Amino acid sequence: MEPKVKEGINGILILFYFLVGGIAVISEYLEDHFLTYISKPFLMPVLFFLYYLNSGKRNNVFILALFFNWIANIAFVAATKDTVYFGSLFFLLYRIAVVYTLVERITFPKMMPFLIGCIPFFFIYITVANLVNAEIENGVYLFWVNGVFMIFLGGFTLANYILNNNKVNTLLLISTLLFTFIQFIVTINLYYLTILIFRPISLAMFVVAQYLLYKAILSMDHKRMLYNNTFSGV
């Protein structure tokens, strides 16, 4: 594909991603379920095409993660306790795939920085758990497992950022922080205190967080391809 054509398509897809994301945020604020159903499910497919277009060495696990996230998004649209449970299951699969992708590609930090990095995420999660634990009922085990992965990912990204605050680690940390606050807001809104503005705020953060994660994975793909080409004599 011609570079100019590829650049043009890339720009259109990015614009479309944030346009769809903006429509989804507005629909959440207006509580327009029809508009949400025709906007939010397009986010992950657009991101998939962006990734497919731009990555020279595609990561199949990340593509699978996008698929899990897409299923979770569809389930979260209804926002009932049953669909949230189903969506949380697929979001857990998404988080496992993301953790695998990052650990497989980024050197694991030393234990002490990692444990220190886990501390703020642990306290955020414990705060949420204390507020909603009695209301979760049959989803309590899934809630705790999601929390373990959230704390692990938070400690991993924060420790790597402290040790080496390059572009990839910065993008990953911001993305992880946004995902952490999303879980905090969504859980509080569903089980503890319902406030209208919570859902559009969490969705806006989701749109940005997922895009930043895509950019981080894309940067890692380019670095790996450059490394392979260098050592293969290409």
Rank of each mutant, 00 (worst) to 15 (best):
I12D: 03
I12Y: 06
I23T: 10
V25N: 10
S27C: 14
S27R: 13
E31M: 13
D32L: 07
H33Y: 13
I38F: 12
P45A: 09
Y52P: 05
G56T: 10
N59F: 01
F68R: 08
N69M: 11
I74G: 14
A75D: 02
T80F: 04
S88N: 09
L89M: 15
L89Y: 10
F90I: 01
I96P: 04
A97N: 02
V98E: 07
V103R: 11
T107E: 12
P109D: 00
K110M: 13
M111D: 06
M111N: 08
M112Q: 11
P120G: 01
F121D: 00
I124P: 00
I126W: 01
L131M: 11
N133L: 12
I136P: 01
N138F: 08
V140R: 15
W144I: 15
F149I: 09
L153T: 10
G155R: 00
L158K: 00
Y161G: 00
N164Q: 07
N165L: 05
K167F: 09
T170S: 15
T170H: 13
T176S: 12
T176I: 08
Q183V: 02
T187S: 15
L190M: 14
T194H: 14
I197R: 12
I197Q: 15
F198I: 05
P200C: 05
I201G: 01
V208L: 14
K223Y: 07
K223A: 14
N229P: 00
N229D: 09
S232W: 03
